[in-house]
Computed example of a mutant assay.
Amino acid sequence: MPPLPSFYESTLHLPFNRAALDGRLLLSTPDQAVGMDGAHWVLLRGTDVLMTAPSAGEPVWPRTGDPAFAELPCQHAVFLGSWDGQPLYAARLPRQFEAPAGFSLHNLLATTPSLDGAQLSLGGLAHQILHWERNSRFCSGCGGELRHLPGEWGKTCVACQYAHFPHIHPCIIVLVRRAGEVLLTRKREWPAGRYSLVAGFVEFGECLEETVAREVLEETGVRVKNVRYVGSQSWPFPSQLMAGFVADYDGGEVRVEEKELEDARWFPLTDLPTLPPQRSIARYLLDHFIDLRTQPANGV
């Protein structure tokens, strides 16, 4: 299987964005469900997705009728539309599930993915939809049962008629720079030696640029200026939209917010630590910033 690109010209084609599906998905809604004969299945155990493991060739989605498919413990199947012209469903697998002979599990968040961009993106989309389905069974207003709206991913309460729609949580992620250096941060749970960028959720009443300034100041004690939007990435783990920015240093000494981070520091471009994988908007921002330093005419 060809690896993911080592460099993306646009955030649009990053994994987990719908454009990365390469036109193979026709998304529909659960009320449009068709028969399961010959259907493709996205089967998830947490962030692991189950694929067939042919003796030769690349892993592919399991299909109704495959050997041993009927024995798989699928839970809460949801119709997603069609994949390559065939019906497409998603379902959960139990946490203790182990792949039987003929199947293999692949982590959607692996540093070096074993799936291509379209497969990662479909797995991420299914993960996000199954999260919405599991967490939207009852009305947050009155506790009544929710049912799907025709032709929508939204739902309506059978008791109070209030309409609910999928929750997408906006976040910012920002590359802060000064002459020859970038500000990188590290969380305790990350792989040893890996650093990334300041990121955080948008709060009540904030625009995205305000969130950038607040998050950088809160987490690192650094002030920023010249905040510029670059691009975005869907991050369906479980339901974020990452808005990427570049900003310039405007003062302050690094002071690590230890509730959020293990470390934060300035790194020279000539001595960078282990960086996020290419599948992330964090790496996109870093790669394009380094290109900006070496090839100023390219821009960001």
Results as ranks from 00 to 15, higher is better:
Thr270Phe: 14
Phe103Val: 05
Gln278Asn: 15
Ala199Thr: 12
Leu217Thr: 15
Pro62Gln: 05
Leu275Ile: 07
Tyr195His: 14
Ala247Pro: 10
Glu219Leu: 13
Phe267Val: 11
Arg293Glu: 13
Tyr8Leu: 07
Leu108His: 02
Lys225Gln: 15
Leu21Cys: 03
Gly154Ala: 02
Gln86Glu: 13
Val182Ile: 13
Ser28Thr: 01
Glu206Thr: 12
Arg45Val: 08
Ser136Ile: 00
His169Tyr: 06
Pro54Thr: 07
Phe204Val: 14
Thr185His: 12
Ile290Phe: 07
Glu215Met: 08
Val216Asn: 11
Glu189Ala: 13
Pro238Met: 03
Leu146Thr: 00
Ala110Met: 06
Thr274Pro: 15
Arg137Ile: 01
Glu215Ala: 13
Gly143Ala: 06
Tyr229Ala: 07
Ile129Pro: 01
Phe69Pro: 12
Val42Ser: 00
Val246Lys: 10
Val222Lys: 08
Val182Gly: 15
Met36Leu: 12
Pro113Phe: 04
His148Val: 01
Gly141Pro: 04
Leu44Ser: 08
Gln278Gly: 12
Arg45His: 10
Gly151Glu: 08
Gly144Met: 01
Thr156Cys: 14
Asn17Ser: 05
Leu183Asn: 14
Leu21Trp: 05
Leu208Ile: 04
Phe245Gln: 10
Arg265Pro: 09
Ile281Tyr: 02
Leu50Gln: 02
Pro67His: 05
Leu88Cys: 02
Glu257Lys: 11
Ala90Val: 01
Leu50Met: 03
Trp41Ser: 15
Pro94Lys: 05
Lys259Cys: 12
Gln295Ile: 15
Val34Cys: 15
Ala126Glu: 00
Leu208Asn: 12
Glu58Thr: 11
Val78Asn: 01
Asp291Met: 14
Gly35Ile: 07
Arg214Met: 10
Phe7Glu: 06
Ala39Asn: 03
Gln119Tyr: 04
Tyr229Asn: 02
Val42Tyr: 00
Val212Ile: 06
Ser232Ala: 11
Ala77Gln: 12
Pro166Ile: 00
Val227Glu: 01
Ala159Arg: 10
His106Ser: 10
Val227Trp: 00
Arg255Tyr: 02
Asp248Lys: 12
Trp61Tyr: 07
Arg186His: 10
Gly141Leu: 01
Trp83Val: 00
Gly205Pro: 11
Pro67Ser: 06
Gly252Leu: 13
Pro273Gly: 08
Asn17Ala: 11
Thr294Gly: 09
Gly144Tyr: 00
Cys142Ala: 03
Phe165Thr: 15
Leu286Val: 14
Asp250Phe: 09
Val230Gly: 02
Ala90Ile: 01
His106Val: 02
Arg188Tyr: 04
Trp41Asn: 05
Leu208Lys: 03
Phe79Gln: 08
Val198Leu: 01
Phe69Ile: 09
Glu210Asn: 03
Ser280Ala: 11
Trp190Met: 15
Asn17Ile: 07
Gly252Trp: 03
Thr270Trp: 15
Ile129Val: 09
Thr111Lys: 14
Glu181Thr: 09
Leu50Tyr: 08
Gln96Asn: 11
Leu44Ile: 03
Met51Ala: 11
Asp22Pro: 06
Ala70His: 10
Gly143Ile: 04
